[in-house]
Design a protein around this nucleic acid. Structure first.
Lengths: 206, 206
DNA sequence: AAAAAACTAAACTGAACAGTTTATATTGGG
DNA sequence: CCCAATATAAACTGTTCAGTTTAGTTTTTT
């Protein structure tokens, strides 16, 4: 009846990944034991090891999937609204919403913590998350310049500045566990502040 | 002859901490083994355990010292230069210089990675590093407002925005290992961009 | 120089844990 | 209904590593 993905390597593949995802996201790489993962996945240890040669590669697979899910959740495109302020505000909202989310934050923590042991994870994360967002933002800003709505001398710098402004006061505190969540109105305040500042510097008076 | 600190808990105290510092900063908490540390410190395992009840507390002590060293290395005060632009540029330079340094970056990585296991470390780090810098910056900006040199509506937000601008494009990439260093001229460019933007938004024309 | 305090090397214990093996069971297609 | 692929539980191996113990040595104090 169903002719699914050609290489469905076995019935429990997804189960293993789901379990691994849950445990890795909860406990980090070192904190997660393979026994925890199989228990969570409802799968035998032998099954896990029939799919993945070792813990490291299982982790890399989970990290990859998580990074991809991320870029989708993040700004996939910026609406071509005529109002630049509105477009930036919307984009900022999606960015902030993602990196303040528990899973987004946890991916960040793990990537930072394990980036020495697994250099590939850093690349993977960047290229499928922040890097994608950056590229989209860059193009959006370029368009703004072309249309005479923005006056940006150093486009690369400006592209890096905007996301950074969106983190003001919240990202660090979340990352180091000083807070576990950020109230909606504070998010709005930070975003509005970011857009105000950005347009003050690079906006062109109508 | 020498009447040193009243409670010098033994001749090798400093040696232990130095060795622990070296190894923790190189390998992180999990990556560091106690045997590595005693080898590095040139001390017996029993000696280490006569000073510290366990690895965790040894780590916390090292982290504490490192965090304190940090706030000293960072902006301890902002020169009361008449020129706000100049003062901000100098302050930014010290901040950036610190968090781009190998040891500053490594402290950040460890704190982020271990903040779940050791919530105290997050607080300690913040209160003796970023928190101190924030407070000094806040007071500096307040003074600027009082003197009519700055027009800031939301002081807390502005205080959070400036350090964030100083990270543009470099902090994340260092944290996840995409880069290991940042050329001096790029640092200068980021700092200049941060100051430009900040003063564009909050500066008062003379 | 005797006594006390600090330190040492090295062997040991016990637990955690990644990965393997074995012997058995379930499942779905032909 | 049977076969082959897939999955299972559970015991096992080997290693790493935190923390302890022991029996003895060095350093400091008195």
């Amino acid at each position: 009846m169903n002719a699914p993905t050609a290489l469905k390597q076995g019935r429990k593949w997804d189960q293993v990944l789901d379990g691994a995802r849950t445990v890795f996201m909860r406990d980090g790489f070192e904190g997660a034991s393979v026994d925890d993962i199989v228990r969570e996945a409802g799968v035998s240890k032998a099954t896990l090891y029939s799919y993945f040669p070792d813990k490291r590669l299982l982790f890399l697979e989970v990290a990859k999937i998580e990074c991809q899910a991320q870029s989708e959740a993040a700004v996939t495109s910026i609406e071509a609204s005529d109002d630049i302020r509105e477009a930036l505000t919307t984009a900022a909202g999606r960015m902030v919403r993602f990196f303040t989310s528990p899973v987004g934050m946890q991916v960040y923590r793990i990537v930072v913590g394990e980036s020495q042991r697994f250099p590939e994870v850093g690349r993977e994360f960047y290229d499928s998350g922040p890097g994608v967002v950056r590229e989209i933002l860059r193009q959006f800003l370029q368009k703004g310049i072309d249309e005479g709505k923005l006056a940006i001398d150093d486009l690369d710098l400006a592209t890096d500045q905007f996301p950074e402004l969106c983190k003001a006061g919240i990202h660090l505190q979340l990352a180091i566990g000083l807070r576990t969540s950020v109230p909606e109105d504070e998010i709005d305040r930070v975003i509005a502040g970011a857009v105000d500042m950005f347009l003050c510097r690079y906006g062109v008076a109508d």
